[in-house]
Amino acid sequence: MGIQTIPGYMTRGIVVNGHGQRFINEDVYPGLVGIEALYRQGMDVWVVLDEEAFEDVPEAERWGLQPPHVAETVAELEKGMGLPEGAAVGGDGAAVFTLGGLATDDEGRVRDRDGGPIAGPYAAGRASSGLHGGGYISGTSLGPGTCFGRRAGCAAAGAQQ
């Protein structure tokens, strides 16, 4: 067993364990997915995405990885992956703890998918960035949250005038 993927696949699909349950938020730091996969899922982990999501990743960024299972229906995919029948039905079992997620510029303006600023929202601290390692160490977001929170606050106040 093992997971072989790239962040571009994970953020366009869902990550499930050997029971077909989503167990983590896909936009977390990729190292956290690896830690969860190794220590809590026994490396019995899959990234599930549709053809459009696969094609959205530029070929040069796929690192030559090809899906080990391709199916027309969810039932066929479950069977090919060795998941229990009906695994795709049911609740979301994902752990929701993220460090980051919103892309921002230096002034805390939230960026759109093309990198341009979105008029209105600002973000700082754990909503926009994080330090990663073997897990979150309490307090590590205080410095960036303070620094970039101040910058975002000043920028937002300036935008109001």
Rank of each mutant, 00 (worst) to 15 (best):
M1C: 04
M1K: 10
G2Y: 06
Q4K: 10
I6W: 01
R12F: 02
V16K: 01
N17F: 05
F23K: 04
I24L: 10
E26P: 12
E26K: 02
D27G: 02
D27K: 07
G34N: 09
L38T: 14
Y39N: 12
Y39F: 13
M43L: 15
M43I: 11
D44G: 10
D44Y: 06
V45R: 03
W46T: 07
V48W: 06
D50H: 11
E51M: 10
F54M: 13
F54G: 08
Q66K: 14
Q66R: 14
Q66E: 15
A71Y: 01
E72L: 09
E76D: 15
G80H: 03
P84C: 07
A87D: 10
A88L: 09
V89T: 09
G91T: 11
A95L: 15
V96T: 13
G100V: 09
G101D: 03
L102F: 13
D105A: 12
D105F: 11
D106L: 14
R109C: 11
V110N: 06
Y122L: 05
A123L: 03
G125D: 05
G133S: 14
I137T: 13
I137L: 12
S138W: 12
G139I: 05
T140C: 03
T140A: 05
G143T: 13
P144D: 07
P144H: 10
T146A: 14
T146M: 15
F148Q: 12
A157H: 01
G158E: 13
Q160R: 05
